[in-house]
Design a protein around this nucleic acid. Structure first.
Lengths: 238, 238
DNA sequence: GGCATATTCAAGTAGATGCTTGAATTTTGT
DNA sequence: ACAAAATTCAAGCATCTACTTGAATATGCC
């Protein structure tokens, strides 16, 4: 309650109802306007996680992570559930995944400096073979292709692309002999800006194997309504 | 350059490249995190406009409006072009419209208080007949339906749904006799949270005519790739 | 050139934000 | 009931944000 320059609202209600409504919309964007909260959303898009794991993931103090989560909660982007002494957070619905994807899309298309930022985080991607979602969907049953999920195992257990095998990057080098030499290996992880799959493809090609990365990640696959499965031992492992 | 608690970046590049990348994504959301800038995006989704018109539309000083536009410009959400002494701003691409739609969707689905805010701005919508985009698309050629665009005429000229007639709310009451009594009149305006169409439907039904509002607005119609047309006299009129 | 119009720039202020540290709360295991 | 673990709450500080006012810039018209 402060300024009033001209008359009032456009037509109906009364005071500055329009301002308040648009402030309401903006509050959703505001909560995504922190890089740390964006990281949180990116992680939670893989499945629910307790506070301390999220805090480690985004490399912030637990108190600070908790406050970010409170904000996300108040804005309705995430929900929480208690299990014993832990509190698990997860995205409140698929609309949030679409929002996060829309933010990235705009950044990629229209933010000049983003290419540099991405390159400095992900390294040079020009030599990586990639595969689109549609291409994978068509070839996934063909038998001349193996699909590996290179995210942390807990996320694989919480949900993964149907038919994928879990091979974390940590294990990758030691399990090379278990991977086929004659088939194309497709790796995927959290999303288009996740390093795991890039690294996996680099390691595999360095060892003379045929490898490609799925351009997007698990959340986009699931959001598109494509087949997923879960090894539901218990949402998120230790 | 301040905090460093644990080690460093996740895997590749080096320093805090991940932090910077996600800060980059977040900067896109940040620019949408002001209600006033959201209003600007909502207006620019209808077509390009000069600064002073935008300033009037959002009921803010010209200086303040200009600063908001600078921010939107730096973040890549809008572009500008000079024509004589005026500078016209417009959205930089369809991804921005998708972003704005995603923000609204999340707000509607997950923000508890939004219903109240919307009701206080738009009034009680429960008695309004509505029509979905798909329904309109199917029935638009049938002849038992008239489509009217109730936005300001400048926006109609910049682009409108193919087959629509321009009838601003100001004119509406005086032009009632020009509207059919036996056909359903469908009104649309800027988007799902635009008051014009609501008011038009209320006026029409009060006068005993059959009327409905299109649930969404022109930008969503265009974004869906459905047929549009323009009376290109000159983008935005005076 | 000089005046008018449209827009941007610059400086100032009240208020919000992100992170920190340390204490308070809630649940589990004994 | 008591200690341990996970999380939240509260206070504090440095920084950033939104708006205001007034001056500066750029274009068009005479």
């Amino acid at each position: 309650m402060s300024r009033h320059k001209k008359s009032m609202g456009s037509t109906p209600g009364g005071h500055d109802a329009k301002k308040e409504l648009f402030d309401g919309f903006a509050s959703v964007a505001k909560v995504m306007s922190s890089g740390r909260r964006a990281e949180i959303v990116d992680v939670l898009a893989q499945g629910e996680r307790p506070v301390d794991e999220i805090s480690r993931e985004i490399r912030q103090s637990i108190a600070n992570t908790s406050q970010h989560l409170q904000l996300l909660l108040r804005a309705g982007l995430v929900k929480s559930r208690r299990d014993g002494t832990r509190i698990y957070y997860s995205l409140s619905g698929p609309a949030v995944i679409r929002l996060w994807a829309a933010v990235r899309d705009v950044a990629v298309e229209h933010l000049a400096e983003l290419d540099d930022l991405a390159t400095s985080y992900l390294g040079d991607r020009s030599s990586l073979t990639t595969m689109t979602r549609d291409e994978l969907r068509e070839r996934i049953g063909d038998g001349d292709l193996m699909l590996i999920d290179v995210r942390p195992e807990a996320e694989f257990r919480a949900g993964h692309i149907a038919g994928a095998a879990s091979v974390t990057i940590k294990e990758l080098e030691t399990r090379l002999d278990q991977l086929p030499n004659d088939r194309l290996i497709v790796a995927y992880c959290r999303g288009p800006y996740c390093v795991y799959a890039d690294n996996a493809v680099r390691i595999l090609t360095r060892h003379g194997m045929k490898a490609a990365r799925l351009e997007e990640g698990f959340p986009e696959w699931k959001e598109a309504g494509l087949p997923v499965e879960a090894s539901n031992t218990n949402a998120s492992g230790a």
